[in-house]
Amino acid sequence: MPRYYFDVHDRQGVHRDEVGLDFPDMDAAILEARRALADMTRESLVIDGATDLGILIRDGDEAPVNLAVTMTTERLDE
């Protein structure tokens, strides 16, 4: 089963995933990245209002980024 690495990007910078997770394919890894990003967004909005978050998915071959899943929010009344 392939291993995928989820590097998290936030206001503090890049947090490289050195462990990774096994998924049957990229589609399963994308689904997990979406779930993780939703959880991270909920938590960060409650704690500190952070709004720019992203997960870059790398495959086990350390290939360049295969996919980015991002969430950005902004106030329109400012």
Rank of each mutant, 00 (worst) to 15 (best):
M1A: 03
M1G: 05
P2M: 00
P2S: 01
P2A: 00
Y4W: 03
Y4E: 03
Y4Q: 01
Y5F: 15
Y5N: 00
F6N: 00
D7S: 02
D7V: 02
V8S: 00
V8K: 01
H9M: 05
H9R: 01
H9E: 11
D10V: 01
D10I: 02
D10W: 03
D10N: 15
R11V: 15
R11Q: 13
R11G: 12
Q12H: 08
Q12F: 11
G13L: 04
G13S: 07
G13N: 04
V14D: 05
H15R: 02
H15S: 02
D17L: 02
E18C: 00
G20N: 03
G20V: 00
G20R: 00
L21D: 13
L21G: 06
L21H: 09
F23L: 09
F23I: 02
P24I: 10
P24H: 05
P24M: 09
P24L: 05
D25C: 05
D25M: 13
D25W: 10
M26T: 09
M26G: 03
M26N: 05
L31S: 12
L31D: 14
E32V: 03
E32C: 04
E32I: 02
E32L: 04
A33Q: 08
R34I: 09
R35C: 11
R35P: 13
A36F: 07
L37I: 08
L37C: 14
A38H: 14
D39T: 09
T41P: 13
T41Q: 06
E43T: 06
E43N: 12
E43K: 07
V46C: 10
I47V: 08
D48W: 04
G49L: 03
T51S: 03
T51H: 11
T51F: 10
D52P: 13
D52R: 08
G54V: 13
I55H: 10
L56N: 12
I57P: 10
D59I: 07
D59R: 06
G60C: 06
D61I: 03
D61H: 03
D61M: 05
D61R: 05
E62M: 12
A63T: 12
P64N: 14
V65M: 08
V65E: 06
N66R: 12
L67D: 09
L67Y: 05
L67T: 10
A68F: 04
A68W: 14
A68Q: 10
V69C: 14
T70G: 15
T73M: 12
T73K: 08
T73Y: 07
E74S: 14
E74T: 10
R75C: 11
L76P: 15
D77E: 08
D77S: 09
